[in-house]
């Protein structure tokens, strides 16, 4: 099994971190992973994306032509990566920002009202973790325990409260995603 995910959005939406936590959680699930960021002028243009590959066999290419899953946090990202998403692949969209449907009909679409949910939790920044929860739920690739461990790894040295806040966001995302 090899699964590839492209996560894309605006600079401030935390897409890189989302990808990293997905990769790290998958590592804690005992899987192989690669995480590949876009960097440089692409980022200056205000959009950012990263590619995560997860597999139970060694991973060859960290570069992906046709991803299994696209997480689109804004409209330009949805339009850009819709074209390359695999047939029957999953498009997870942040419906707080994306007010339209992807045009392809041969893909599965899931939605998460990430900004709104993040606001109800009381911290708009965690919209990425809300989305991550939605991703975990619909793909079944990573479980909450592994995500918790990854959050611990990333935030614990800085601030224990951040771990809880982010984990809470993930749980909300898992509950709120619509297929």
């Amino acid at each position: 099994m090899i699964k590839s995910i492209i996560i894309a959005g605006f600079g401030g939406q935390g897409v890189m971190l989302m990808g990293k936590i997905i990769a790290e959680a998958a590592m804690f699930e005992g899987l192989n992973v690669t995480w590949l960021p876009s960097y440089g002028p692409e980022m200056r243009g205000g959009t950012a994306n990263c590619t995560v590959v997860i597999g139970d066999e060694p991973i060859g290419s960290p570069v992906v032509d046709f991803p299994d899953v696209v997480i689109a946090m804004n409209i330009p990202s949805m339009m850009k990566f819709e074209e390359v998403l695999k047939k029957d692949g999953t498009m997870l969209i942040n419906s707080s920002v994306i007010d339209r449907e992807p045009s392809r009909k041969d893909i599965k679409v899931s939605k998460i009202d990430a900004n709104k949910i993040a606001d109800t939790i009381g911290n708009s920044k965690v919209l990425n973790m809300v989305t991550l929860g939605a991703f975990a739920k619909i793909t079944g690739l990573i479980k909450i325990e592994a995500i918790g461990k990854a959050l611990e790894e990333t935030f614990a040295s800085k601030n224990k409260k951040l771990v809880d806040l982010n984990l809470q966001a993930v749980e909300h995302g898992m509950k709120s995603v619509t297929d």
């Binding site: 990293k20 990769a23 590592m27 192989n32 992973v33 690669t34 995480w35 590949l36 960021p37 960097y39 960290p62 570069v63």
Partner: peptide
């Protein structure tokens, strides 16, 4: 290359 420099892997 830049990819090995920038990517993450366990």
């Amino acid at each position: 290359d830049g990819m090995i420099g920038q990517m993450m892997e366990p």
